[in-house]
Amino acid sequence: MQAVILSAGIGSRLLPLTREIPKCLVEVGGRSILDHQLAALHAAGVERAVIVGGYRYRQIGAHLAQARPPLPVRLVFNPFWAVASSIGSVWMARDQLDAPFCLLNGDTVFAADLLAAALAAPGEGVGLLVERLGEAEPDDMLVTVANGGICAVAKDLALDVATHRSLGVIVSHGGDAYAQALERVIARPDGIDAFHHAVVAELAGYAPVRAIVAGEGAWQEIDRPADIAAWTGRGG
């Protein structure tokens, strides 16, 4: 199992923290988001990681050289980070998507036990890590789950059909289904503007996609300065 971490964006909602550093190097509880992620992935049994950088990506490389992460890491540059959505970063790592992988956004901190349970969840093919929806937040990626499978994924999904929110983690046990769906989505006229969840939505239209419901373990998306305090306040 390898990880693909999407860390190319500028993180404008975290300004001024991201004026001089990429979002993944913002510190949360005394450690960068990236260091939190690599430690959790290693503890969860992931063997190596590919980090897709864009904005100030050379700083990510310098950080990795100094930090000595606990698992082998390869940094890939996404030169289209300023003109494409997150699907562009997935495309830059497409040669990794036939083997077993977990893909995650570079702005979310996870407890290792939550990731380990997601990777060990039973089932074949592609899965999306979700949690049951309580009160929806404006930036939530909403999901409809039925009979253990993903039916729909979108930020503008109607609240009367949304049952869960996505944690942004995709798990695949291998095969080319996800990569083929990625190519179909990004090849459309507006494909580069799609969030990477559009690949899951595409695949769910014609093949089973597992809903991996998050169990125990904290997680926190770091979108705004207040989110940093929310994670440290939970003892993470």
Rank of each mutant, 00 (worst) to 15 (best):
I5R: 02
L6N: 03
S7G: 13
I10A: 13
I10Q: 13
R13P: 14
L14K: 03
P16G: 10
T18W: 12
I21N: 09
C24P: 02
L25Y: 15
S32G: 15
I33T: 10
L34Y: 06
L34R: 03
H36C: 08
L41K: 00
G45M: 07
G45W: 11
E47R: 13
V52F: 11
G53E: 10
Y55M: 08
Y55V: 10
R56A: 13
Y57T: 14
Q59D: 12
G61F: 10
A62E: 15
H63T: 04
H63R: 00
R68A: 15
P70A: 12
P70Q: 11
R74C: 13
L75S: 09
P79K: 07
P79T: 07
F80S: 15
W81R: 02
A84I: 00
S86N: 08
D95R: 08
Q96H: 14
L97Q: 07
A99V: 06
A99E: 15
A99C: 01
P100H: 07
F101T: 05
L104H: 01
N105P: 07
N105T: 10
G106E: 10
D107T: 09
D107R: 05
T108P: 03
F110C: 02
A112G: 08
D113C: 08
D113W: 07
D113Q: 14
L115N: 04
A116H: 13
A117V: 06
A118I: 07
A120C: 02
P122R: 06
P122M: 10
G123F: 05
E124S: 08
E124Y: 01
G125I: 01
L128A: 06
V130K: 02
P138N: 05
D139K: 12
D139S: 15
D140Q: 08
V145W: 00
G148Y: 10
G149A: 14
I150Y: 05
I150P: 02
A154P: 02
K155C: 04
A158C: 05
D160F: 07
V161G: 00
A162S: 05
A162N: 04
R165L: 02
S166H: 00
L167R: 04
I170V: 12
V171E: 02
H173N: 13
G175I: 03
D176E: 13
A177W: 06
A177R: 04
Y178M: 02
Q180L: 11
L182Q: 01
G191V: 07
G191Q: 03
I192D: 15
A194M: 14
F195D: 15
H196Y: 15
A198R: 09
V199Y: 12
G205Q: 03
A211M: 06
I212G: 06
E216F: 10
G217A: 11
I222V: 14
D223K: 12
I228R: 01
A230L: 15
W231L: 10
G233L: 11
R234V: 11
